[in-house]
Write a protein that binds this DNA or RNA. Structure first.
Length: 292
DNA sequence: TTCCAGGGGTAGA
DNA sequence: TCTACCCATGGA
């Protein structure tokens, strides 16, 4: 048994607020993501294109610091891929300056801008984010966590590749206990593995008609899931309403009374293409004392 | 047992 | 575009 190699690297980027980035969204609670006990480090395993398997620990102190172990010493291509994955997960390449200017005039959101909040954790690949999104539909959050944990068990602790998921037998899919979603996950994985669908290509044009059409072509992805995937791609002009967000907006702005989706969404209409971030951080800022 | 959970597909109007 | 009905699973 060889000792794992250790590595360390830092990543330049805009100022971020790591705690709200990690805990503002439920993704940190879905395997193989996890947080350190004191909530200041993102941890997850990652299989690189070279086949090298790494365990990452990502923290922040004026810059993003990555410490990790790898099965083999990192090649320069491996290092580049680790950097790219971290930039993607933390959304370091998104320009939020317009959102922050918008926040400055809002009594609740003001501190969100002051503390450089606005980024939300996502997965290193669009494939992983789509699979996880399908696992959130029509079930409790607890069930979602179970399904995703079982998916990672298929990948020996790592999130399975499209190829690995596409090759799953019916018996293995049954073990996911994903119900009717299992067939949707298998079909999506097969389309990606065969090259007929390239989710990574959506990053280049998250607002494009072709992107939206391809997202909507995935079985198991309806209105809510499509909006959620667009949000993960960095497009915030729609708020994907689910039972959870409906309940919160109704409670906060309608005194718990019944309201149509149109009425709920109207609350954030003035925020233009930043509607989702405005909703999300309105909610986070009201609830969490780590933004002050 | 029934109902609901961070909904979606399909058929029919 | 809207509605009714069905869909697997886990927890309350």
């Amino acid at each position: 048994m060889t000792q794992p190699a250790r590595f360390r690297l830092s990543i330049k980027g805009p100022p971020i607020h790591l705690e709200s980035l990690l805990f503002g969204h439920g993704w940190i609670f879905l395997a193989p993501h996890r947080a350190s006990e004191n909530r200041d480090t993102l941890e997850r395993p990652l299989t690189l294109a070279s086949g090298n398997r790494v365990d990452l620990r990502v923290s922040y102190a004026s810059q993003v610091n990555v410490q990790g172990t790898s099965a083999r010493p990192l090649s320069s291509a491996d290092r580049s891929e680790v950097r790219r994955a971290c930039r993607t997960m933390l959304r370091l390449d998104e320009d939020l300056s317009e959102f922050h200017r918008l926040c400055a005039g809002d009594p609740v959101l003001r501190k969100v801008a002051r503390r450089s909040c606005g980024r939300l954790l996502r997965s290193p690949t669009v494939f992983e984010d789509v699979v996880k999104t399908i696992c959130t539909t029509n079930c409790s959050w607890g069930n979602t966590k179970l399904m995703v944990t079982r998916l990672c068990e298929l990948g020996d602790g790592h999130f399975p590749s499209p190829e690995a998921l596409a090759e799953c037998t019916a018996r293995q899919l049954k073990l996911l206990r994903a119900g009717y979603r299992a067939a949707y996950l298998a079909e999506f994985a097969q389309r990606v593995a065969s090259g007929t669908l390239d989710p990574e290509s959506w990053r280049a044009d998250p607002g494009g008609e072709n992107t939206l059409a391809e997202i909507r072509s995935i079985k198991g992805v309806g209105n809510y899931a499509a909006g959620h995937i667009l949000m993960l791609l960095g497009r915030y002009d729609t708020i994907p309403l689910d039972s959870e967000s409906r309940t919160w907006i109704r409670k906060t702005y309608f005194r718990g009374r019944k309201a149509s989706d149109k009425q709920l969404l109207a609350r954030y209409e003035p925020h233009g293409r930043w509607k989702f971030l405005a909703y999300k951080f309105d909610r986070i800022a009201r609830r969490e004392n780590y933004i002050n």
